[in-house]
Amino acid sequence: MEAIYAIWQRDILKFFRDRTRLVGSFAMPFMFLILFGSGMSGAMSTMLGGEGASGPLSDFNFVEFMFPGIIGMTVFNTAIFSALSVVQDKEFGYMREILVSPMSRVSIAIGKVLGGSTVAVFQGLMMLVFVPFIGISISYMTIIKLFPVMFLVAFAISSIGLLIASSLKTAQGFQMIVQILIFPMLFLSGALFPLSGMPAWMDVLVKINPLTYSVDMFKKIIFDVEQMNPVLVEAMGLNLRIFDHVITFTEEVVVVTIISIVFVVLATIKFSRAEA
């Protein structure tokens, strides 16, 4: 237990000491909100309902739509890149200090995943400072609901990160693979634009993408879907379906939990096999 705590603590300590990383992690989502949100909201509204759309669609606010996606993106990025520290520790030698100690490899892997998850949750919650500028209101209840879901998502993604990091020796290699993985996953998750009217093959990719469910959970928590007009719900892509079955929040939690478990087990096995 102490081992898990020690590994976790080191990651947290280093995260808060690294100012550039803290600031940098704000810059990216901020840019997305400005560029995509404000800049393209006109175009989006036009696409959805035509100029001066009336009725329920006139309520569509693209920045508002994007916000849960931005939170998702932040959690995702932070969680997966947290595993970079594993590769860096290999490069700078610290991994040997860790691996020659009597700690069990399983504890080390769990500590790493928890460290990454914690940092990612923190970053995700920090995104809520944008709330007043976007013009949505969020209750404390929403934050309390967001917290465990963020953690679950972060845990799943950190595990994927650790699995990749355990198979690689250099930070460059890790960054390359993660970049290749991250963009399609983000674009096909519904984080940045509504996923309606996609070709069938792309729809399949969307449905096997764990991020899709993660982002959808954030949306369901932040937007009060039940109170919204069905037409708007449809337009914002808030009714994720598999074979005409509308996926519920609970099912999404189950899916992401299963993904978490599978990947944390795989990552731990892979990590345990590493020679120092």
Partner: peptide
């Protein structure tokens, strides 16, 4: 080779 964490 050194195995200290130089950031700490």
């Amino acid at each position: 080779e050194s195995t200290l964490d130089e950031k700490l």
